[in-house]
């Protein structure tokens, strides 16, 4: 495993971000869309603030995780907190509809091919 330069990153460890919890509830799936329901208030944990700001537009959990540079589990725990406080709402993607409406893979590949040729 490659060693990173020591002074990259932040001093806070993940268990301090989650308050020692490591188990997330399963209410959030990787592609669950999160929408914030209110503005961040002062005194909130900075991750909560960032999630609320990020999720002004519906944003997938996995995106939040990438933006916050935090593991999925941690984001799930944070979202669980926010959800419990009613500050965010979760929308599960309508998988059935979207799958039906999707173009076929072959067509997509052709489009991709065409784009690359541009």
């Amino acid at each position: 495993m490659s060693r990173k330069p020591v002074d990259i990153g932040d001093p806070d460890r993940l268990y301090t971000v989650t308050g020692g919890r490591s188990e997330a509830d399963d209410a959030f799936d990787l592609v669950t869309l999160i929408v914030s329901e209110c503005e961040p208030a002062a005194g909130m944990q900075s991750e909560h603030v960032r999630i609320l700001e990020l999720c002004r537009h519906p944003t997938a959990l996995v995106e939040v995780s990438a933006e916050l540079k935090l593991p999925i589990t941690v984001v799930r725990i944070l979202l669980g907190d926010l959800h419990a406080m009613g500050k965010v709402s979760a929308r599960h993607p309508r998988a059935a509809d979207s799958v039906a409406a999707l173009p076929e893979t072959a067509l997509l590949q052709e489009v991709l091919h065409g784009l690359r040729n541009l």
Binding site: L30, V31, A60, V62, P93, A95, S98, V99, L102
Partner: peptide
């Protein structure tokens, strides 16, 4: 970063996202 286990549900998400 999340690993490969959730690759299949993520596929439709690429469009909806």
């Amino acid at each position: 970063a999340a690993g490969t286990t959730d690759a299949s549900p993520a596929a439709p998400g690429e469009d909806t996202g």
